[in-house]
């Protein structure tokens, strides 16, 4: 419950992990350094850029401003958990096809944000897409292709064109 080191047990992408960590260890550093899941990126490290977004207990969170110890007992999904059977999921595929990334640094955060968004709003307007993406910063694309990719992913997922 207290002090120098704390025991953490959580599930990431369906696999259970247990570690002993300092309470000040940020969840993003836990994922990257303790578990080796380096797909989740550290951008600004103070909750502004969204690069470190994962899904925790069904909701997006910023792992650079959450402590690992707070994820005790949590179910976490990271970008490594999106592909199924080695194939890109519809959102990843749409980002690929629409050139929605250049350097790719922000992409994992965008993918997790879009995962939650399309789950709740399968047929969004362009305005809704832009609002949903506003908490994730991309310095390369100018967002146009990202918006296009989200629209394409939504269409594909609605039509069930991608069967997995």
């Amino acid at each position: 419950m207290t002090t120098e080191t704390t025991h953490v047990r959580l599930t990431v992408n369906g696999r259970v992990y247990e570690r002993t960590v300092e309470p000040r260890l940020l969840l993003v550093d836990f994922l990257r350094h303790e578990l080796g899941l380096t797909g989740t990126h550290v951008g600004c490290a103070h909750g502004v850029c969204g690069a470190c977004t994962v899904i925790m207990n069904g909701e997006t969170v910023r792992t650079c401003i959450t402590f690992a110890v707070q994820a005790e007992g949590a179910q976490i999904k990271t970008v490594e958990g999106l592909a199924e059977n080695g194939r890109l999921n519809p959102i990843q595929q749409a980002f690929h096809e629409n050139h929605a990334l250049q350097c790719g640094y922000c992409t994992p955060g965008f993918l997790m944000t879009v995962t939650e968004f399309l789950d709740e709003n399968p047929d969004p307007s362009e305005n809704e897409i832009r609002h949903a993406l506003a908490g994730n910063l991309c310095r390369c694309t100018g967002y146009v292709n990202i918006v296009r990719a989200v629209r394409a992913a939504a269409e594909k997922m609605r039509s069930g064109a991608v069967q997995r």
């Binding site: 910023r62 650079c64 401003i65 402590f67």
Partner: peptide, 23 residues
């Protein structure tokens, strides 16, 4: 929720000796 406090702690603007997590 930590969405204001943890950024300040990351930048070491805030350095509380004890955190009482309400979560």
């Amino acid at each position: 929720g930590g969405q204001s406090l943890v950024p300040l702690m990351n930048m070491r603007v805030a350095r509380p000796a004890v955190l009482v997590d309400l979560n």
